[in-house]
Amino acid sequence: MTLIGTARPDRTAVRPAAPVRDAAPATTRASRVRRALPARLRHHPLTRPGALLALAVVVVVLAWALVPGAFTSHDPITGVPADALAPPGAAHWFGTDHLGRDLFARTVHGTALSVRAALVAVAVAAAAGSAVGAVAGFVGGRVDDVLMRGADVLLAIPNLLLSLAVVTVLGFGTLEVALAVGIASVATFARLMRGEVLRVRRATYVEAAHLAGAGRASVVVRHVLPNSAGPVLALTTVELGGVVLAVSALSFLGYGATPPTPEWGSLVAEGRNYLATAWWYSTLPGAVIAVVVLAAGRLGRAVGRPGRTAR
């Protein structure tokens, strides 16, 4: 129930009947488009142009991961040596690498591995972190102390170093990298989930439910968990971007997929030796990573800031 974007919560400006929840100046065309939508959707931040674009990016990338063959006819593994290091053009959108392989095809075909790793990592982090945080928030007392001190310790080690330490033990490979990145993010989710559970548990409507005679389990299932889930879902989306970055960084450092299997981070790494001669080699696959992370972040912020009907 916050007034987002208003410089000053002015009660006069916000009539109960027609709340002006978001005062951020909208561009005229965007507001006209949104005015055509049904009232419930119109105010949802997911309908902003930026968020829609981000959604489109994420959908395209998921499609690349599922059916890479539909987007490119080039072979990602075997190249045409005669075409080696060809600059971007109509034949090769992203140019070719030193073995004459089409870089766009390698990027598209590498998506599945990178996206899968990111999803595994974020699933591990969200599932384990939410579980730990929920237990800490519900049980409280000594259990809460121990779990949260543990989270503090994990947060004391920079994420990348923590995942590197885990990779050292687990060994190299995409799945190992995904697990390592996921483990490094557990503490963030645990903290958030615990905070949300505590916030909702203290809410007046939870007390009202107890007074209405609702049992403990029913309050947890009907009130606490659904109302805690929103922010956790938002963090999951935001973290997806961070996880894509971390996974590609580890694969750039050489701990991910083994050549010649294409993967986003390792594609950028392969181009390192051709910086002076083939600018596109590292630049274009890297730009894809940046766009995807940016889109995930934008989407996360939209999910995390629900419109007036969602909260």
């Binding site: 971007g241 970055l245 590609s248 960084a249 750039f252 981070g265 950028v268 790494a269 181009g271 390192r272 910086l275 002076a276 600018w279 590292s282 630049t283 890297g286 730009a287 990573i289 940046a290 992370v293 940016l294 972040g297 934008r298 912020r301």
Partner: peptide, 18 residues
């Protein structure tokens, strides 16, 4: 800032080098 957080560090380094 969201852009700065989203670009991979290794990629920025390589582009700057280039």
């Amino acid at each position: 800032p969201p852009l700065g957080v989203a670009v991979p560090t290794f990629w920025v380094g390589l582009v700057l080098l280039q």
